[in-house]
Amino acid sequence: MHSDDTDPAHHDENVYDALATADDDGRWAFGTGFDAGTAEIDAPVPEGVDRADLAAYCLMLADDALIAAQRLAGWTAKAPELEEDVALANIALDLLGQARVLLSRAGHLGAAEPFRAGPQDDEDVLTYFRDDRGFRNVTLVETDLGDFGRTIAWILVLSSWRLALMQRLTGSRDPVLAAVAGKAVKELAYHRDYAAQWTLRLGDGTELSHARMQAGLDDVWPFVEELFLPHDVERRLAEAGVAVDPAELRGEVDGVLEQVLPLATLTRPERAAVGLVGGRGGRDGVHTESLGTVLAVMQSLARAHPEATW
């Protein structure tokens, strides 16, 4: 025990004491290295719901947030202004927090077992030791963020869609999904406002900012359609009162864009959808080569040194 704990003269509230007295039993070097210990994780699977379906759905929503967070983290220390650097990192952090609980739930339901090679927690196994075909994220989140205009268009679409989804998911029969959604709604409302306000500023700004904002929106547009295509797992779980059928979200997302784009003097793009191969997309593990780039950055060090601790 550290002497500060017993000496009344040092019994102040210095949080740094914790650093000096932390158990140094060696955290795994790359991931969280600790169990989030969330009370809801081991809640029973709701009656009439297939365990594998629920695990797959948790992975879908986790992977959307995890890959989006990894993409956004690429802006850290590179954003146009310090405030935007902080904002983008904060948005990434919120999404990462949502992903962690969902990954733990998916792991609790068995999703991590095929990938386990060491003592890591479920969320770390799923993050670092899964290949691209095992990821269930929509294509949009793996695409390159491009310039700041494209990044804003990407956040506007993603957060409008995820907010509409999470708001409905607060009524899920699965207590973990409902709990994650309850927090996510508050966070995503900030993300969407941030993107909408920047869309106005850039779209209705200078000739150059308008052109780049419109180009960013055009680039993102082909990936929007996939957001509203229900996967069989989503259909079955929506039927059971656990998931949300994404087709239901189109009206609300359109409503947000109809509110923002005209004010920003931007034109709603007319571009053919991409992202599906033979009707299969990110939800089936069919990804673009962009995901390989994201995973290389995110996973390669951990895979090269899977036993490393600090």
Partner: peptide, 27 residues
């Protein structure tokens, strides 16, 4: 860090067995 601090302070106060859990709901 909150979890670690709670464990540390409770141990120092003589509580040997401590379990710190987190809950998301209600938010």
């Amino acid at each position: 860090e909150m979890r670690a601090d709670l464990r540390r302070k409770l141990h120092a106060a003589g509580h040997d067995r401590v379990d710190v859990r987190t809950t998301f709901s209600p938010p």
